[in-house]
Design a binder for these strands. Structure first.
Lengths: 232, 232
DNA sequence: TTATAATGTAATGCA
DNA sequence: TGCATTACATTATT
């Protein structure tokens, strides 16, 4: 036995088959302590303890160990592993939560786009009804600008959305279909907007560039303040 | 180091209860002694193998084991553990990806909301420009007034906002009911915007009904922003 | 120094 | 074989 340990030590530097030796040692150990897999009873108590206190004091651990016929070390390790497990589970939960949130937001986004389109149509119809829609002198500068740049803004939105699509591979698989729908819809909206005879379509540079800015998320800590981008 | 190992061995032969043995083993702060870790060389080869094939054939495993001086079983287990590791890493990656996607979409949603609001305002302006806005039968009493319509829209969106505010801090809250509310919301807005007599949007229930559910939690999160309503 | 959180890794056992 | 679990190691922190 002692020879075996010595051999392990020696083979450390050789870095080869000492693993076998160690494996044997372990096996013999675990044969002695034939307690892989705690019993249900043990698990139950540990679990209930974990529920109230995920990181108990030494004393409690000792008490637990005593009650369960385990070594305090085993109890401590169990708690460690348990914490790790619960953490990784938490991550998964948060992922699912986030996923649902995303889907929800996506559907809202969709609805909002539809509404936007309808509003555009309404605007179109209204403008058509009024033969000569806007006379520049009448409306205040800003409002007038809004009017004139309406389709412009729309186009910006389109571009925004369009360039959103390719990089929006985030929400995994099924999202791609949504993206396609978005694209189609946006194209339609764009067509609608193009009907507008005011010709205020200014293909200003690519709005995608602004997209690239906030990839790290932190930039948009105040997303509701982002209204400036199309306010131009 | 060798002394430590020897100590463990001795306690084994002394025939103590196995718990004491384990205790001694633990206490013997096995510094470098217990090197069950594979060699860098071994890891390297395994790793490079894993890159090309994460679940190799039996034959390959045997060959690897032979080359590395490991048991085939060890090699198989290594691959298994390696796969598990890479999987959990993948989950984390996907979470981050999804998170970015969410933020991205949220900002787009925000922009879209702003534009939507703008469109509403424009519609209102146009309507005001036309002396005779809508036929009374269609629109509700309040909406037919000049800017009040707009205010109504704001109010509605405010409610939408309110129900969303609580989860403003992060996408971590469940909000399955929001969709329904939003749909109603949209319909109302559309109704408001509806001036063309196609009669598609007959008035539904009153939107006031859902103003009671939500506490305005995170409204103060972005006090400086005028876009609080329409907020997610 | 001890203790332990956090992370990684080898191995076990069951379905 | 896949998966959860046990045990242990390593590193960093206090």
């Amino acid at each position: 036995m002692l020879a075996a340990a010595a051999k392990a030590e020696v083979s450390l530097s050789s870095g080869d088959s000492e693993l076998n030796v160690m494996a044997n040692i372990w096996k013999s150990k675990s044969k002695n302590t034939n307690r892989k897999r705690f019993t249900d009873e043990q698990i139950r108590l540990l679990e209930s303890m974990f529920k109230t206190e995920s990181r108990p004091e030494m004393e409690i651990k000792y008490k637990l160990a005593n009650e369960l016929g385990l070594h305090p070390r085993q109890v401590a390790i169990w708690f460690q592993n348990r914490r790790a497990r619960s953490k990784s589970k938490l991550i998964e939960q948060e992922y699912n939560l986030l996923k649902r949130s995303y889907d929800n937001l996506a559907s809202k986004f969709d609805s909002l786009k539809n509404e936007n389109q309808r509003l555009l149509i309404q605007l179109q119809k209204l403008r058509n009804l009024m033969g000569k829609p806007q006379d520049p002198g009448k409306c205040s500068d800003k409002e007038c600008d809004n009017m004139d740049t309406h389709s412009d803004a729309e186009e910006k939105t389109n571009r925004l959305l369009d360039c959103n699509q390719p990089k929006n591979r985030g929400p995994l698989r099924e999202d791609s279909s949504e993206n396609l729908e978005y694209v189609t819809e946006e194209a339609d909206i764009l067509k609608m907007a193009e009907i507008v005879p005011d010709g205020s379509f200014i293909s200003t540079g690519n709005w995608c560039s602004f997209e690239l800015n906030f990839e790290s998320g932190g930039v948009l800590d105040h997303p509701s303040c982002s209204s400036e981008w199309w306010e131009i």
